Amino acid sequence: MIDLDDLDRGVLRLLARDGTLGAGEIGRRLGMSQPAAWRRVRRLEEAGVIAGRRVEVDRAALGFGVTVFLGVKLATRGRVSLEDFERAVVAIPEVQVVQHVLGLFDYRLRVVARDIVDFERVLRRRIMTLPGVGNVEANVLLTEELRPGPLG
């Protein structure tokens, strides 16, 4: 674990909101020079605090207007069932995130679809036919607020 000061937290907040910011802009916003900002970003990357920068894609602009979170409970237990399920579910393009979780369900999936009819097709033809699938619970995303995380 790395000790973070207020400037480190400021760098992280800025990059969490916009990963495309350069060191010059970060420095201007935080009142430090471009080289000083660059050194901070580099140190945070080397320490593993910044694990990468991602492009945020507007799913709705691409025609994917529905996001559904699925809780999936496998019908059978065992290492082979988990591996078979994981291998099959990651091959479905509409499944954006696969999380193995502890609790009522074994997995949590983030699924995108063009509309509810398209989601039903994905659910019936792709997800419900996966190896080991037992119970499934769907929660349709209404709104989402992105937060930069616990940066103090």
Results as ranks from 00 to 15, higher is better:
1 M>I: 13
3 D>T: 15
4 L>K: 07
4 L>N: 04
5 D>P: 04
5 D>M: 11
6 D>M: 12
7 L>W: 02
7 L>M: 12
8 D>S: 11
10 G>E: 04
10 G>F: 02
13 R>A: 13
16 A>L: 02
17 R>G: 14
17 R>L: 11
18 D>R: 09
19 G>L: 09
20 T>A: 09
20 T>V: 01
20 T>L: 05
21 L>N: 06
21 L>P: 01
22 G>M: 08
22 G>Q: 05
23 A>M: 06
25 E>P: 03
26 I>T: 11
28 R>M: 10
29 R>N: 01
31 G>L: 14
31 G>N: 14
37 A>N: 09
39 R>H: 15
40 R>F: 02
42 R>W: 12
42 R>I: 02
43 R>A: 15
43 R>S: 13
44 L>N: 06
45 E>G: 05
49 V>F: 12
50 I>W: 06
50 I>G: 01
55 V>I: 14
56 E>Q: 12
58 D>W: 10
58 D>H: 12
58 D>P: 05
60 A>I: 12
61 A>G: 07
61 A>F: 08
62 L>F: 14
67 T>Q: 12
67 T>Y: 01
67 T>K: 13
68 V>Y: 10
70 L>M: 12
70 L>R: 01
71 G>R: 06
72 V>Y: 07
73 K>D: 05
74 L>R: 06
74 L>V: 08
78 G>S: 07
78 G>E: 04
79 R>H: 11
80 V>Y: 01
81 S>P: 00
86 E>T: 06
86 E>R: 07
87 R>E: 15
88 A>H: 04
89 V>K: 06
89 V>Q: 03
90 V>W: 12
97 V>K: 09
98 V>E: 00
98 V>F: 10
99 Q>A: 14
99 Q>F: 12
99 Q>N: 13
99 Q>R: 07
101 V>Q: 04
101 V>F: 01
102 L>S: 15
103 G>C: 07
105 F>K: 05
107 Y>H: 05
107 Y>S: 00
111 V>F: 06
111 V>K: 02
112 V>M: 12
112 V>D: 10
115 D>K: 11
117 V>P: 00
118 D>Y: 01
118 D>K: 06
124 R>L: 13
127 I>E: 02
130 L>M: 00
133 V>K: 05
133 V>Y: 08
135 N>G: 13
135 N>F: 13
137 E>R: 14
139 N>S: 14
142 L>T: 14
142 L>W: 14
142 L>P: 00
144 E>G: 10
147 R>N: 08
148 P>G: 12
150 P>N: 02
152 G>S: 09
152 G>W: 04
152 G>F: 03
